[in-house]
Design a protein around this nucleic acid. Structure first.
Lengths: 228, 228
DNA sequence: CCGACGCTTCGACCGCGGCCGAAGTAAATC
DNA sequence: GATTTACTTCGGCCGCGGTCGAAGCGTCGG
């Protein structure tokens, strides 16, 4: 029967280490140039170009030309979610070799996961919000309580677009360093965006890792009694 | 950085057409023998054996010996969800060849998707429940209303296990034949189970497709005014 | 105990696809 | 225009991994 070939095609694209590296680099949410992706993947520019051609053709990534640079980004949240779900399965298995996968302390500490927070920061925020009954996280879905909505509104998190759409939009996302869920979905993205806007959080150059600014530290402490 | 190798490893496993066929066959939710999977994949038994060995080693499938048969099934819902998310991306892309993918009418009509309903039946049920405000489906999550809980209870759907866990457990799952969401997650699974128990639905041999029995037809009509 | 069946292991074949060097195009800088 | 930078295309090398035939191993039925 069916559409197995198509699935296999997509999976095979992700199944090459070089391409997987590129896609994971793009999970940071930003658009990256071919050269940056070349470094991320650890292969030559020519090889990278070939890979990017295939990823584009399959619409896993999209291209934005800008001067002599070519910026690639993930084609959309669906692709990000696919990568996350694969990650989730990959980390479940029996100790796959993860030798000195000693990920940077920075990364463990705080990073973005496509469009929301992960790492100790992400899990910490999730824990704090759960403890306050601002959100309820199930296995497959999450929900924001009325108190949670008020809290987010007070913080200035913009949920207008999401609200219009329907009121459930909070997805638990398994954190691969902490091995515990953090808050993804529309709510996670909006919360992260607000933190960037408030300058509570800043991106670290060339990395998915992020830093918490002093004002961010204060803000998170006041809002959620969170000290990281 | 990171865990790209592990992701690539899992994705590469799914990235082979023969293995993809097997995994999709297993999406039916039942355990299948090596020979059945061999037929599904269209390769020789030896080849199949090799593939199954790899899939087992990576814990994408698990083995149950029974007499001289060896039954394989998906290792869990996480694997199923991964496959679904890949499917979702695969069907998004630009017209990938889907030449005479004329899936069986049976399949289009009604089938299982790991542990819940899909096809016209699945989408029909979802539509009817949404129309009655029994569930609210968002992009990434879903919610059962109070009225919906009463409806399910009246139908005898057992949600006790899920209830204990936390109250959100309804996941929209994109249907690849109808291209519209149906109800997955704990609720979808429990609903499907109840329908099997009531003998409203029966499995078709060697297929994910299912048939609706006469009593099922009556029951669905009474419960949801659904005529399929 | 023998044959049939279900499945796995071994070995050899071979083709697909990732890889890089070299050369080509296009945009920015001088 | 000439040079540098960013990226792609081409061509050839090479190895990984999917494939099947043949043989081995356990289980069931008579």
């Amino acid at each position: 029967m069916s559409n197995a070939p198509q699935i296999a095609e997509v999976a095979a694209l992700v199944g090459d280490p070089a391409r997987a590296n590129m896609l994971i680099a793009l999970l940071g949410g930003r658009a990256l140039t071919a050269t940056e992706l070349s470094n991320a993947a650890g292969v030559s520019p020519q090889t990278t170009s070939g890979h990017l051609g295939k990823l584009s053709a399959a619409r896993l990534v999209v291209l934005m030309k800008q001067g002599r640079h070519r910026y690639y980004r993930l084609a959309g949240p669906q692709v990000a979610q696919m990568l996350e779900s694969i990650m989730s399965v990959a980390l479940d298995g029996p100790q796959r070799y993860q030798p000195k996968t000693r990920v940077d302390e920075q990364m463990r500490h705080a990073r973005t996961c496509y469009d929301h927070f992960a790492g100790q920061l992400g899990v910490g925020v999730a824990d704090a919000m759960i403890a306050r009954d601002f959100v309820v996280l199930g296995v497959e879905a999450g929900e924001v309580t009325t108190a949670g909505m008020e809290f987010l509104a007070r913080l200035g998190v913009d949920l207008s677009g999401a609200q219009a759409k329907r009121r459930v939009f909070c997805r638990p996302c398994l954190d691969w360093t902490e091995r515990r869920p953090h808050i993804g979905g529309t709510v996670g993205a909006a919360f992260a965006q607000r933190c960037f806007d408030l300058k509570w959080i800043e991106r670290i150059r060339d990395s998915r890792a992020i830093t918490i600014t002093p004002s961010g530290r204060r803000g998170l402490m006041e809002a959620l009694s969170l000290s990281i």
